[in-house]
Nucleic acid binder design. Structure first.
Lengths: 252, 252
DNA sequence: CGCTTAGTTGACTCTTCTCAAAAGCAGTGG
DNA sequence: CCACTGCTTTTGAGAAGAGTCAACTAAGCG
């Protein structure tokens, strides 16, 4: 049973929308054809591909990215366990961007036909998966605001707030800490800033005692303080408020 | 028949994906319950709303936006005739952003139940509308890249390329010209830059003879030159290539 | 013609980028 | 165990891009 547990993160995420029944969970678990392991830096899907499987990220972090003609790489989204990489591209002629493994990753493959059947036959799951794509879009909008309008310190602070909540939603956070398996270069490519400036911005957040880091583990000692600092409003993540109330009140 | 012609732009847009039959067109046209006119500056939907109609923009430009606590407004998307404002929010608890009329607008209201029936009963239209939302998302990703990684001149140039193609796709361009009913302040709020810098950037594009403006009409004398300058690749708009080949070859 | 809004300009400040080099850290082979 | 290598993080310093403030011009409107 190499596909055991592939869907725990996904199921955990979907619960923030609507609790799936045991039957739903089983359906999901059975839909995984096989799993693949990738090393950091390899591509899960490349621009121009027309995948015949939907990719579900089971372990590790991945990112949507594009490379500009001037050589600059831009990361447009982070994918963490429980995220589907490409439910949405079944319709489009080809991928207009690539998805790369940012850390070592484990990916579950679900045949498109299986997903389609599943969504036809199961109203709850169909709505839950649909909800997931809408949240992805809302996150994208928020990132656009972040990159366009927030100063560097708030920009990075906002991202850290988001990833703390998202990792917590799939059971990957430990208290106020989570693993951020990215280099500063990758963070810079995400937030549209230079490596040097990202480095200094992180130092700024540390010196303000808003975050602490230990290797690639980030700890937010006082989530409320960071959220206030970064003007972070979790509405756009569309999780039920009570799910992360604990975080909001951590140092109430 | 006040709703006559409400759907021409939408139908024209969908043709870039798959040609709807006459019957499909009629179904769409009949789904409009009523139309509303709005003046520039008024909101079509506000953050927190849970609309019971889907809004189809028939005339004018609108924009998705958020206001940050520091008072900065950020425009995250432009909506032009043929664009649906909120197919996607039927599932979410509430709007996480507002949509405002950037110019005088005419909006058609389609009851959610009608849209739902229509998508259940008509495979072609369902897929076409679904395609529309995927393109919206692709545009959002491209804007994130633009704001994050392109220098000011390319940033604005890229936006103008996009809007030329999008207006052409719904029959609103005349040759290489289109009406851009926005103030420089609104453009600045879109691209994440200051009003003054937007003004100078537009001057830069004009002095490089990449665009000319006359009131709110923008003319791209040489689309290929501007596309090259702005590193614009229309792939992300997911229109069939032949639809805008004319533009690409304008001064071949 | 006066009023209001939008576009333009100049001067100055501050953020952010670039270049360049040093320091830290993990893996490899001798 | 240590030197070596490659990658990531950190630092310094000058240059360029972008923001702010404030004033002035242009255009639309009653």
């Amino acid at each position: 049973m190499s596909t055991d547990g592939c869907c725990t993160a996904l199921i955990r995420k979907l619960q923030h929308f609507e609790k799936p029944s045991d039957e739903d969970k089983e359906l999901l678990a059975n839909s995984v054809a096989r799993t693949v392991e990738l090393i950091a830096g390899s591509d899960i899907i490349e621009q121009g591909d027309k995948p015949d499987h939907v990719h579900l990220l089971v372990e590790g972090w991945a990112g949507r990215y594009k490379i500009l003609p001037n050589g600059r790489r831009n990361i447009m989204a982070y994918l963490i366990p429980g995220d589907l990489c490409d439910v949405n591209v079944a319709l489009l002629e080809e991928m207009d961007h690539s998805i790369g493994a940012l850390s070592g990753c484990k990916v579950a493959l679900i045949p498109i036909a299986t997903i389609r059947n599943l969504m036809d036959q199961n109203r709850t799951l169909a709505r839950a998966l649909w909800w997931g794509t809408l949240v992805d879009e809302a996150v994208l909008r928020e990132w656009l605001v972040t990159v366009g309008s927030r100063p560097a310190l708030q920009r990075v602070g906002h991202l850290i707030c988001e990833m703390l909540i998202r990792t917590e939603a799939v059971g990957l956070a430990r208290g106020n800490s989570f693993d951020l398996p990215l280099t500063q270069q990758e963070l810079a490519d995400t937030m549209g800033m230079s490596l040097v400036h990202m480095n200094r911005t992180l130092q700024g957040l540390r010196s303000r005692e808003l975050i602490t880091t230990n290797g690639h583990t980030v700890t937010v000692e006082n989530p409320r303080a960071l959220m206030k600092f970064a003007a972070f409003d979790p509405l756009y993540l569309h999780q039920q408020a009570h799910k992360f109330r604990s975080l909001m009140q951590a140092v109430a």
